[in-house]
Design a protein around this nucleic acid. Structure first.
Length: 489
RNA sequence: CGGGGCGUAGCGCAGCCUGGUCAGCGCGCCGGGUUUGGGUCCCGGAGGUCGCCGGUUCGAAUCCGGCCGCCCCGACCA
């Protein structure tokens, strides 16, 4: 039986595979505006599952949710020099507050009489408006720390958009904190970085590389940027989250000082950190295969799909499906029954594989007779028959757990296998040529990094320290610092 | 911004070179029947000012000029 393939093989054309999986699995589709996407119910359910757990962890670590406005006066961006340099090129600007019918052009257009005296920027990130506000909120050491978070949309007018990975508008969570001491702010930035790592491991089944960014790759306005770098199945790195130690840069830019316990005046120390809908792109590219998505069970909108095989006695089959669904739902398992009569079972098997549903249960006349169900795993494709009894929900629950671990272990094995350690520039170049990502001793400068990009089209994704010293591959200087070098999204 | 591709039915496409029964196919949709343990099959039906503007011509989806938009690859970025 020839398979009707709607998506190309991953190995054939990864980029096209990615686009087709996103579109055909029902995660998202293109919007009328370039670079924007419509996040469809299935994709949004996935995002909401990410939100729910992440929000819990953010609040658990002492942060309160807030909402700041979408529009920011353009002058706010002039305050912090690096910040404006980083974002100016990609800002959408609101200049008018009214449309009118332009009789000359025969179209609706901004009313020239309704031009704003000061244009507003649609936020590309909220540091500026938040620090403008912090000035009002902070006078004394008693006002600190302030630890807030907001779930919002932001807009960055990207040159080259890509579904979920780099859309002009995207959804994210941005945390912003203010502290009395450098040490406390640094601690906060590292803590949230660690929180992301645990969340990725426990929910996305991805354990990315972690470390800090080189000065070149740092957030505009940060003193230190901590990052999480996942390696996708095509060997390219994807920045999955960041946490910035902002020093006193924004406090100085917005003149936010406080009176210490000793009565002196000091600038406030800051952090900001965030993850976005890009994580959905990471899930697709880290776990997906030729059949489509493979969603980690703790985030999957549908954890178990039940597919009936109708046979002669349809009511009996439907009833059996309902009973089992109820049993699973009562055990807290997100279960969906597909009672659609139009499509045959084979069609449905393919459909739910494309959509990455972790577990499929098939129920037909045979199963009813034997008081058993056929259970298939999306991650490995394995099928097994489980008895239809009180133990079923527990068995499925355990299976979901196993699937999570399998996905995580497969990811880790892949990441380990694609990573090579090099002790010379030559070795590194060869490994990159072979499609590997490379870990090297590094004490180079911005200049060396620029050369890497020009010559090999790769960047330093992150830096960390090892226990022993090795000579840097570009300077020969002994160093404990290691760099992960890879092509990136 | 550079390179490439595309715009014809809801979706995917053919037709364009060589202007004239070229308004066509597949999927989907609607109606009826059949089938259901890995993408059933058959019959009937609805649906398009061929991206926009202008030109050439007796005649333009097709040729010419201009404009607009989208996608892919690169430089920038979560």
């Amino acid at each position: 039986m020839p398979e009707k393939r709607t998506i190309p093989a991953q190995s054939e054309n990864f980029s096209e595979w990615y686009i087709q999986v996103v579109l055909n699995s029902g995660l998202a589709e293109y919007a009328p505006v370039r670079g924007c996407m419509i996040i469809k119910p299935y994709g949004y359910a996935l995002w909401q599952n990410i939100q729910t757990e992440l929000d819990r962890r953010i609040r658990e670590t002492g942060h309160l949710n807030v909402y700041f406005p979408l529009l920011i006066p353009v002058s706010f961006f002039a305050r912090e020099a690096q910040h404006i340099e980083g974002f100016a090129k990609e800002c959408a600007v609101v200049t008018h507050y009214r449309l009118h019918w332009d009789a000359h052009q025969q179209q609706i257009a901004p009313d020239p009489d309704a031009q704003l005296t000061e244009p507003y920027v649609i936020r590309p990130t909220s540091e500026t408006i938040i620090w403008h506000t912090f000035r009002k909120w902070i006078q004394s050491w008693r006002d600190l720390p302030i630890k807030i978070n907001q779930w919002a949309n932001v807009m960055r007018w990207e040159m080259r958009p890509r579904l979920f990975l780099r859309t002009s508008e995207f959804l994210w969570q941005e945390g912003h904190t203010a502290h009395a001491t450098r040490q406390e702010a640094e601690q906060e930035a590292r803590q949230m970085h660690q929180m992301y790592l645990e969340f990725f491991r426990e929910y996305l089944a991805i354990e990315p590389y972690t470390g800090w960014k080189s000065p070149r790759e740092r957030f505009a306005g940060a003193e230190q940027t901590y990052t999480l770098e996942g390696i996708m199945r095509d060997g390219k790195a994807l920045q999955m989250g960041t946490s910035h130690f902002l020093g006193q840069n924004f406090a100085r830019a917005f003149d936010v000082q406080f009176t210490t316990q000793e009565g002196t005046r000091e600038y406030v120390w800051a952090t900001s950190w965030g993850v976005s809908t890009r994580l959905i792109g990471a899930l697709v590219m880290a776990h997906g295969d030729d059949h489509g998505l493979r969603l980690p069970p703790r985030l999957a909108p549908i954890q178990v799909v039940i597919i009936p095989i109708w046979g002669k006695d349809e009511p009996a089959v439907e009833d059996a499906c309902q009973q089992i669904a109820r049993m699973l739902q009562q055990a807290g398992i997100r279960t969906h029954i597909d009672l659609d009569r139009e499509h045959r079972p084979g069609w449905k098997f393919h459909e739910y594989e494309l959509r990455g549903v972790p577990v499929r249960i098939v129920i037909g006349p045979k199963d009813i007779q034997q008081r058993a169900v056929e259970v298939a795993r999306r991650d490995t494709g394995e099928k097994q028959t489980l008895p239809w009894n009180d133990q079923l929900p527990t068995a499925i629950h355990d299976l979901l757990h196993t699937i999570h671990n399998t996905l995580l272990n497969q990811y880790k094995a892949f990441q380990q296998q694609i990573t090579v350690e090099a002790t010379s520039f030559q070795q590194m170049a060869q490994a990159l040529q072979d499609g590997k990502v490379v870990c090297v001793p590094w004490a180079g400068s911005d200049h060396h990094e620029e050369q890497l990009q020009e010559q090999h089209n790769v960047t330093i994704r992150c830096l960390w320290t090892d226990d022993y010293e090795e000579p840097c591959i570009v300077t020969g200087q002994k160093t404990r610092v290691r760099a992960l070098i890879a092509p990136a999204y």
